[in-house]
Design a protein around this nucleic acid. Structure first.
Length: 895
DNA sequence: GGGCTGGAACAATTC
DNA sequence: TCGAATTGTTCCAGC
């Protein structure tokens, strides 16, 4: 494949994505990322897809996401990224790239040659890179920091698919996998070059816990290290092994050092002040977008047009999944793996095919079926953002987990399964599935920061067994991430009670020292339960859905000390202030303070004021505060600010969003999201983004609900009736995890302008469904939307950043006013336009429990209004762009 | 006896 | 540079 840019973007970080018109390939064929851009040899699917893509000459301008696909091919489902900066910001240029199918190269060359491996790479390499200010201070993989440099990465990283199983570091001295999920001939071969990709499989473990494979995560970073030993912990306490024997004090790791940060500590400290802000930058929406652009459909692709070697590689990739070796497991291979290549097939479990060896809980009525022959190796990587609903299907977390769950270390015994607020356990249900075959619900621990959802490097799901556990489950490993597989049975209405999942904490030092790992563990203690289900379609395709839970604080101390705002009775109010707002949450103290903050684009505080707190009303879980008057009483458009509860110097809650409306904007009252609270306090509560993106201060036009809809709402048909409206059980503590929530209202997204066509926002959906691209954020959809979007369980369930069909902003300036270029992180992670179907709004509205006024009906033909979303970086040093660039971008966005 | 919990000691890291 | 504060990890005890 060859790639050339005919129009080199003026911005170095522009990432271009091209989608193959090919039906099955929803291929984000190419992603050209500058300066680090390079062909990301990852994405096998892309690879083989490209095989079928002759020469694609694309003018990125209106690559309207889904619209790119034709009705018959709709790889729908995927989010079409357009021009984006590594930080997710849209590219302003519309470079034209020509893509020549790999097929012109001998397969061997394609796969084995490292020299020819990436034409993309060559091309990119010649591109001048942008020197980022304070780059060294970033840990953002997208930056050229030591930590994130290719040299420090390895295939072991589980950080992301592109960093782990797919990414071929060898080939990219300068590419950050985050930079360019480009298609590369080496895409698949990269797997081969990453023998450890299947890591866990090869690592029996030393973990004394019931999670033997967990140890593999760390262990892989020390290939030369004798099994059973682990890197020294910075903690002097780590003197003994689990059996009491002294730990080896020496390590074979070349990078071993007395300190946890052998790389000169490229990792920055994450503090209350900068954590969220920093994390924002880590996001490379472009990559995610590219990844999302892929389809899970692999059957056809795999069978056709894919070089044998490629297929083999892909199979290898599938090998990265292994089953936990249960004592006595009969179906396990000698290596303790079980028909890995068959894994995908297990997604469509058939009752008639039992695989007893998998059964951990024999008494359970459900037995894991024996894997069917290899079907599709291209299930979406764990860091792919998937929608929670697609077509008739909707994966919902009916009962959210408690916001706190103390994770256990390997050195400790289990701390039990994650519980629900009500005392039970989380419940997940798949709606719309009418088949008689059971499905497999996958569960893994995901991140809960501002970045796009991905497997959490420091936490793993821990399988809980015992007489108190009613749900069968078994574990598999996929790229260092443990996945718990739970049967979803028709007889149970495709509903599963998640009482078999605990959370294991891996030592920071173990993970941080791992090659390729760029995340830091310190204060990175929030996670989300991520559920996935893959539904095989009659046409051979697979629809993959994903739903992420509310954030769960896993730190013992944080859970006990940090204030947590779960809900707020008011999301927005006129700039005049004066409204009493009830906050509910945890750990409020008599001397808790509530501070409103507004920051400028450069991260500087524009305004900060302490709101009046009704001291008499403070309880440990509620606090009443008076909304302070905004600094400018004459704002003409909503202004989003943030506030937090502070219990002390470093004990602040996450930022919560609040929107000041122009004084004359009518307030639309919406239904309380929490009857109890409403009745009790007279104030309706809105769950709040627990995560917030403090630095964002989007200014949104009021009238564009339709131009800016809730992200995370995938194009689901109007099935309210079939859908549970906001589940009471799931709404008591709704957190807006989604960075998306902050979002990116994309004006006239390409999709809007796109010709009618199937725009299947979700994976491999049925083509034909008209979808509209939407900016997505409830809060941003409009000031009105901001009022309640957060109360939507849907909002929560549809994984914030996930589950959205983000159609990344087009590279075209005119069409990519996407979100927030200035905020590489935060909500900013993924500026995208969400595909949306007319019925979607209603559906979501229903899901939202009636709290989503922002979900206005919209249809593809309706005129859309451009919305400008201005989001700010939390800190100056987090910006990727200089003021000039920002100004230019913003001016471009502002329509 | 093992799993689950809550609490806290101890040490490293950060402020 | 030092002390305090914070955070991570391990250990203990009780149920």
């Amino acid at each position: 494949m060859s790639l050339s840019t005919e129009t080199c973007p003026s911005y170095s970080h522009v990432v271009l994505f091209f989608f193959s018109p090919d039906a099955y390939s929803y291929t984000p064929n190419v992603s050209l990322s500058l300066p680090l851009g390079m062909g990301n040899p990852c994405l096998a699917t892309q690879y083989h897809t490209l095989q079928n893509s002759p020469v694609i000459s694309v003018t990125s301008c209106h690559q309207t996401g889904y619209s790119l696909q034709n009705d018959n091919h709709a790889p729908s489902g995927y989010y079409l990224p357009h021009g984006l900066r590594p930080n997710g910001a849209p590219a302003l240029e519309s470079p034209r790239i020509e893509i020549t199918a790999y097929s012109q190269y001998p397969e061997d060359e394609v796969e084995e040659s490292s020299s020819e491996d990436n034409v993309i790479k060559r091309g990119v390499n010649s591109i001048v890179t942008l020197t980022l200010p304070n780059a060294e201070g970033y840990r953002d993989p997208s930056c050229l920091s030591p930590a994130s440099s290719v040299s420090s990465r390895s295939c072991n990283s589980e950080a992301s698919s592109y960093e782990s199983s797919f990414y071929n570091y060898d080939n990219s001295p300068q590419n950050s996998p985050w930079q360019s999920p480009c298609v590369s001939p080496r895409g698949s071969s990269s797997l081969l070059s990453c023998p450890l990709a299947s890591g866990p499989i090869a690592s029996p473990h030393h973990s004394p816990s019931t999670s033997p494979q967990i140890g593999a995560v760390a262990e892989e970073a020390w290939p030369a290290q004798p099994r059973g030993s682990r890197p020294d912990s910075p903690s002097g306490k780590r003197k003994y092994s689990f059996n009491g024997a002294p730990f080896r004090q020496t390590s074979c790791s070349p990078t071993q050092s007395p300190t946890p940060s052998p790389h000169g500590s490229p990792r920055v400290s994450v503090t209350d002040e900068n954590w969220l802000a920093n994390t924002n930058q880590y996001t490379n929406s472009a990559i995610v977008a590219a990844i999302n652009a892929l389809t899970t459909d692999g059957v056809v692709d795999m069978g056709e047009g894919i070089p044998i070697k490629t297929r083999k590689t892909m199979l290898d990739h599938s090998l990265s999944m292994s089953l936990k070796v249960e004592p006595g497991g009969e179906d396990l291979s000698p290596e303790g793996e079980l028909c890995h290549e068959d894994y995908p097939s297990r997604l469509g479990l058939k009752k008639e095919n039992y695989c007893g060896g998998f059964l951990d809980v024999p008494q359970h009525p459900y037995s894991w079926s024996k894997p069917k022959p290899y079907l599709s190796p291209s299930l979406p990587a764990l860091d792919w953002q998937l929608p929670s609903c697609s077509g008739p299907y909707n994966l919902q977390i009916e009962v959210q987990p408690k916001s706190h769950h103390r994770a256990h270390y390997e050195t400790e015994g289990s701390r039990g399964a994650v519980k629900a607020l009500s005392g039970g356990h989380p419940v997940v249900q798949l709606y719309g599935y009418m088949e008689s075959e059971p499905l497999t619900l996958q569960l893994f621990i995901g991140t809960a920061d501002d970045r796009l959802l991905r497997p959490h490097a420091f936490y793993q799901v821990h399988r809980i067994t015992g007489k108190t556990v009613s749900t069968a489950s078994h574990e598999v490993m996929q790229s260092n991430t443990k996945i718990l597989e739970i049967p979803l049975l028709p007889e149970n209405n495709m509903r599963a009670i998640i009482d078999c999942a605990g959370i294991l904490k891996l030592r920071n030092s173990d993970i941080e020292l791992r090659k390729g790992e760029t995340d830091i563990g310190r204060k990175n203690t929030r996670v989300r339960l991520v559920f996935r289900v893959h539904i095989n379609q009659a046409n051979g395709r697979t629809v993959s859905l994903q739903a992420a839970s509310n954030p769960i604080e896993c730190s013992q101390r944080s859970a006990q000390e940090l204030p947590l705002v779960e809900k707020q009775s008011v999301d927005s109010y006129p700039a005049t202030g004066g409204k009493m707002m009830l906050l509910s949450g945890l750990n409020f103290l008599p001397d808790s303070k509530v501070v409103f903050v507004e920051k400028a684009q450069d991260g500087h505080h524009l305004w900060e004021t302490e709101a009046k707190v009704d001291k008499d009303s403070i309880k440990c879980n509620t606090i009443v505060v008076e909304v302070p008057p905004y600094r400018n009483q004459r704002i003409s458009s909503p202004v989003q600010v943030n506030f937090y509860v502070c219990n002390g110097k470093r004990k602040r809650s996450q930022y919560q969003r609040f929107t000041f409306l122009p004084p004359n904007v009518p307030i639309i009252k919406t239904e309380p999201s929490d009857e109890y609270e409403s009745m009790r306090t007279g104030l309706s509560m809105h769950s709040k983004p627990y995560y917030n993106q403090p630095r964002l201060t989007p200014i949104m036009p009021v009238n564009d609900a339709d131009a800016c809809l809730v992200s995370g709402y995938s194009p689901c048909p109007p099935r309210h009736a079939a859908m549970p409206s906001s589940s009471p059980s799931s709404s008591p503590t709704l957190h807006d995890l989604s960075p998306m929530a902050y979002n990116k209202c994309l004006p006239n997204s390409p999709t809007h302008a796109a010709p009618p066509g199937p725009v299947a926002p979700t994976i491999q959906e049925n083509p034909g469904r008209p979808n509209l691209a939407h900016p997505a954020s409830p809060d941003h959809s409009s000031p009105l939307g901001m009022l309640h979007s957060q109360g939507s369980p849907n909002h929560l369930n549809s994984p914030g950043p996930h589950g959205y069909h983000h159609i990344y902003a087009n590279s075209s300036p005119s069409s990519s006013p996407v979100s927030h270029p200035s905020t590489p992180g935060g909500a900013a992670e993924s500026p995208f336009v969400q595909a949306y179907s007319p019925s979607h709004g209603a559906a979501n509205s229903a899901q939202a429990g009636g709290n989503s006024p922002s979900l206005l009906h919209e249809d593809s033909s309706s005129p859309t209004v451009s919305i400008t979303v201005k989001q700010e970086p939390q800190e100056l040093d987090q910006m990727y762009l200089d003021d000039g660039e920002l100004s230019e971008i913003l001016s471009t966005w502002i329509v």
